[in-house]
Design a protein around this nucleic acid. Sequence first.
DNA 1: AATATGCGCAACCGCCTCATT
DNA 2: AAATGAGGCGGTTGCGCATAT
Length: 273
Amino acid sequence: MGRQPCCDKLGVKKGPWTAEEDNKLINFILTNGQCRWRAVPKLAGLRRCGKSCRLRWTNYLRPDLKRGLLSESEEQLVIDLHARLGNRWSKIAARLPGRTDNEIKNHWNTHIKKKLIKRGIDPVTHEALQKDHQDTETNNHSTPVESTNVTGSSEETSSSSPHENCSTLSGEPEISFESLCEDEKLLSYLLGDDEPPLVDTMSWELPNNINAQNINSDIGAFASWDDCVRWLLDAQDFGVHDFGFDCFDEIEMSVLDTLETNNKQYSSHNQEP
DNA sequence: AATATGCGCAACCGCCTCATT
DNA sequence: AAATGAGGCGGTTGCGCATAT
């Protein structure tokens, strides 16, 4: 007994989404909130698969998405997390507010992988490529290669942990994963045991009983519902940060600050005899 | 100017997990 | 306990654009 397809394949549109379809989906979700994705296409008047709607919403239309390239600190965080979690993109994405698993996966495959390889690091194992060569250089010491030392720096300190020498691509001091391990709570959070302190997406989802007029009065004086949707689409183009949703940045910076502080504490602690 | 090649990203596909019946 | 449905995830594909020849 096979599974039913998630949607009726006949008459289901594929390919790039049009602005009109985006409008319909945004209209529907802003009005009704996220409900059963399978029912969304029908209710929203879209000839799309429910999955496709979910993907479009989560990867592109969500108003809390950041746009643009990952910052260096984000990239470093991705590398660190990947060293620990592997290709569990959704877990990794959960640690980067405003970023999607798809986006991170794409960025990994197109940018970070190459950077790591260029720096002699195997993007899969996070160990050094050409191990034989490096082994002879390091006196045959079988210490695991720094998984996230993407600076390619050859300065080997006495630290023995494979994750201690984390640094940014720009060479700035960065978050050490081992240092994070000193903080059980933080580690637990990073490894996914706890929910990350991200923005609660439900906070902007709208209850079913709120209609377009309510939203208009809440968001501002939009002349029409179309204006509201247009505004939202514009927000996508510019990024929510351009529209005053800096809480996302604050939360992210708070997390990064915590990590950095922890790293410093660990470093100073480590330097003590 | 035309063509080939490479790259980045949005979207799809199929499988897995979990909740519900 | 088994069957089913729905959402979620990771891998892959294909299109559009930029750059090289």
